[in-house]
């Protein structure tokens, strides 16, 4: 099967093992090899990668802010390509995103704001 990385991976929807939305593919990490074609190693998710794509300084600023969300944040979230399968037009992860850093902001907002609103 022929896969176009930018068309079929970059900015496409990620679904976790439970079918929940788990962000978009914000970046792709390639490994350059001597005398051989480059190999895809990871997909990157999260605001740090997205902000870096727009502007380096913005990326640094977002990374500082994002680091406050706890472990695994403040840096690009990397998922090994072996854990991702193409299910066009989306991509499927073989893990549940809920417990991963991908959902750190969702968990923080839920705990700090949503759960404090009555009957939510």
């Amino acid at each position: 099967m022929r896969v176009c990385l930018v068309r079929d991976f970059l900015d496409n929807q990620l679904l976790d093992a439970r079918g929940q939305n788990a962000g978009k593919v914000d970046g792709i990490v390639l490994e350059l090899r001597q005398g051989e074609p480059p190999r895809v190693r990871y997909v990157e998710v999260g605001p740090v990668t997205l902000a870096r794509r727009l502007n380096r300084r913005l990326g640094k600023w977002v990374a500082r802010l994002d680091a406050r969300l706890g472990d695994g944040r403040g840096v690009p979230i990397r998922i090994p390509i072996s854990r991702v399968t193409l299910d066009a037009p989306s991509l499927r992860l073989d893990v549940a995103a809920e417990s991963t850093p991908i959902m750190a902001l969702e968990r923080w907002l839920r705990r700090k704001i949503v759960c404090r609103i009555p009957w939510s």
Binding site: L105, E106, L109, R110, I113, V114, C115, I117, S120
Partner: peptide
């Protein structure tokens, strides 16, 4: 709202 906190907020 607790299932989609970012959307609801």
């Amino acid at each position: 709202p607790r299932e989609d906190a970012r959307f609801s907020l």
